[in-house]
Amino acid sequence: MAVIQRIKKPTTRRGKKVLLSKEPKPIEGPKQCIFLQGRNPSERTRKLLKDIYDLKKPDAAFLSRKNDFVPFEDSSLIEKLSYKKEAALFGVGSHSKKRPHNIILGRTFNYGILDMIELGADKYKAMSEFHNMKVLAGLKPCLIFNGPAWDLNQDLKRLKSLFTDFFHREKVESIRLQGLEHALSFTATDDGSIYFRSYRILLKKSGQRTPRVELEEIGPSIDFKLRRTKLASDDLYKESCKIPKELKPITKKNISKDAFGTKMGRIHIGKQDINRLQTRKMKGLKKTPEEKKQMLMKKKMARQAAKRTQAMAA
């Protein structure tokens, strides 16, 4: 589904602009996200998706129509919508007897499915059930992953990356200290339950420069259970994680530092011309006036010959 090198030329300037904007770029903006509803979404899944949508808000779209599809069997709808909406992340909610309160989170690469992880929402408390002040929309949250299982289990490892991708918002250069207001905590156990909590950070005085952190739960609070997964092959994942050449830091050659922190440079000098080397001056090696004259004549002749050949060529 690549856009580049299509055969038909765009007819309008606007169409061309759209196609150009869809072409891959070295530096990408924040990933857009779409939230879909499956065949028969329960009230819980709908509310849950809405809460996650609220957390992601400026970079997300909530598609309220029901879709008769199963992402794990046929992902063509997601791929189509990801192309249409330019979205690389998706969340699908569905409900069935076999898989009650089913949430599928995933991401795409080049408009094809990369990862897809199914989670069952066992317990859920909505954001609206917490009666307190919420955080501002669009803040970059602190992501806290608790538990050794995040690094041990292969599925959870990918889920950690997926959660980071979902909630980290955007790569930023600098951040306002007062803007550190939101913390998302993910706790995983070995049996595949994941506890998702969201807190507001309260910065209290500590008598020092660094403040004392207190947390207040603002919701949503979800207890997930890990279900099916569909992870990208290592090759595809590696390709998707490629860093473009432009963004790689340029290493300066021949510069090193020694143990004391002194900067050392290595310089390459070209081959020395021995014939032109100035040796010791002696009267015996000096050129006589006749020799000097001859040399000048020789140089003059050569210059003239060069000029003539140039004129001939032109």
Binding site: E23, P24, E28, N110, T164, Y237, S240, K242
Partner: peptide, 10 residues
Amino acid sequence: TILPRSKPVP
């Protein structure tokens, strides 16, 4: 942490 891109490197 390196996160996957949404589209391949141009």
